[in-house]
């Protein structure tokens, strides 16, 4: 018997020979993960969760009046400058040289941020006056969740859209800032949101690429700081958040590797129907 239709054979057309399944292959493209590597990669998710947590905590303290806007602004400015220096120092200026971006352009962007935010802060202050606070909270929570969903964690998927994720974060920060007591608060809040949602991930990405050990340290430190901050507000929340972080960084990689063993993907001399759906057009 031959697997051809163009020759006359003493079998019916729908005859299937015993040899047919000899060419069956299983799990050809399945990857074997190592536990440590998966934990290392899950650092990005942990970092982003911690960023959101820190942002919400900061807003909380500002709204409660425990944190002065000047202090926060000074701290943010100092950390930004530190981060800016680090950003160039980590790879010795190679990235900057590759992108061709000058320091003048950086300064200009900073000025535009500052000027627009400062100019619009009175508007932001009165923007949502007539809207219920619960609506604002719900909207912010939704937007931050969207930010976490669409964030570029390094995976190659259609759902990833860093632009959308950043915009959602800014939207949430504007909404929350409009609930703060004064316009300076709003200005500082939006500036801080830009730093933590736009600049901080860029630095993280560079650290992860250049110095992985350092990145792990920074992640752990950042997560501990976020947990400590959350503990001052609500201990139950802190416990829950810690368990979430642990689940994401330890339990989820373990599950992934265990489930990988159950993978049963068959390949053979037949044509498979592949569904190639372009999800990006829905976003």
């Amino acid at each position: 018997w031959q697997k051809v239709l163009y020759e006359r054979q003493p079998f019916p057309d729908n005859y299937v020979d015993q040899r047919f399944l000899e060419e069956l292959r299983k799990n050809v493209h399945a990857r074997r993960y190592r536990y440590r590597a998966v934990v290392f990669q899950s650092g990005a998710v942990v970092q982003q969760l911690c960023s959101v947590c820190v942002f919400v905590l900061t807003w909380w303290y500002m709204a409660a009046g425990a944190l002065s806007p000047q202090g926060l602004f000074a701290a943010a400015l100092a950390s930004s400058l530190l981060g800016y220096v680090l950003f160039d120092a980590v790879d010795g200026g190679a990235g900057r040289w590759a992108s061709g971006r000058t320091r003048w352009a950086d300064l200009k962007s900073t000025l535009v941020f500052a000027a627009f935010t400062y100019g619009f802060s009175p508007v932001l202050k009165t923007l949502t006056e007539s809207i219920s606070t619960d609506t604002i909270y719900a909207m912010s929570a939704l937007m931050l969740l969207g930010h976490l969903i669409f964030f570029d964690y390094g995976a190659n998927a259609a759902i990833v859209s860093s632009t959308l994720s950043l915009n959602m974060a800014i939207f949430a920060s504007v909404c929350l800032a409009s609930r703060l007591p004064r316009s300076l608060h709003a200005f500082v809040m939006v500036t801080f949101a830009m730093q933590i949602f736009a600049l901080w991930p860029m630095l993280q990405k560079k650290l992860k690429a250049q110095t992985p050990r350092c990145y792990v340290g920074v992640t752990v430190l950042f997560a501990l700081a976020a947990l400590a901050g959350l503990a001052t507000v609500s201990s139950v929340g802190a416990v829950l958040f810690a368990s979430l972080l642990l689940a994401i960084s330890c339990l989820c990689p373990y599950c992934l590797i265990r489930l990988q063993l159950l993978k049963d993907n068959i390949h053979g001399p037949w044509d498979e129907a592949e569904i190639k759906e372009d999800l990006s057009r829905f976003l």
Partner: peptide
């Protein structure tokens, strides 16, 4: 079409979007 915006463009655009939406 999809387009990659600069950071400052995104920021100002979203700021204005929020303001216009609420007004």
């Amino acid at each position: 079409d999809s387009c990659s915006y600069d950071l400052d463009q995104l920021f100002i655009g979203t700021l204005l979007f929020t303001i216009l939406l609420f007004l």
